[in-house]
Amino acid sequence: MLDIAVIFVGIVLAISLVLNIYRLFVGPNASDRLLALDTMYINSIALILVYGMHSSTTLYFEAALLIAMLGFVSSVAFAKYLLRGDIIE
C-alpha cells in the first residue's frame, strides 16, 4: 500500500514540476519566472525525499538540505539583483 502512495505522490510531483516549467517559460515578467524557480526548488526537495522513500535509503536527505539552503540563497540573490541592479552594494 505504501508503494502505491509513494508512486502516486511521485507522479503528482512530476505534474507539479511541469506546471512550474510552464510558468517559467510563459511568465510575463522576471518576477514570475523567479517565483516559478523558487517553487521548483521546493518541489524538487519533495521529489528527492519521495525518491529516498521509494528506494528505502537515507542517503538523499543531505542533498535535500543542500537544495533548501542554496535555493533560498540564490532566490534572494536573484531578487536583490532585480530590485537594486546589484547584489552586494
Binding site: V12, L13, I15, S16, L17, L19, N20, R23, L35, A36, T39, I42, N43, A46
Partner: peptide
C-alpha cells in the same frame, strides 16, 4: 503541493 503549483 499540486494545488500550489496549479495556482501558480
Amino acid at each position: 503541493i499540486f494545488v500550489g503549483s496549479l495556482g501558480l
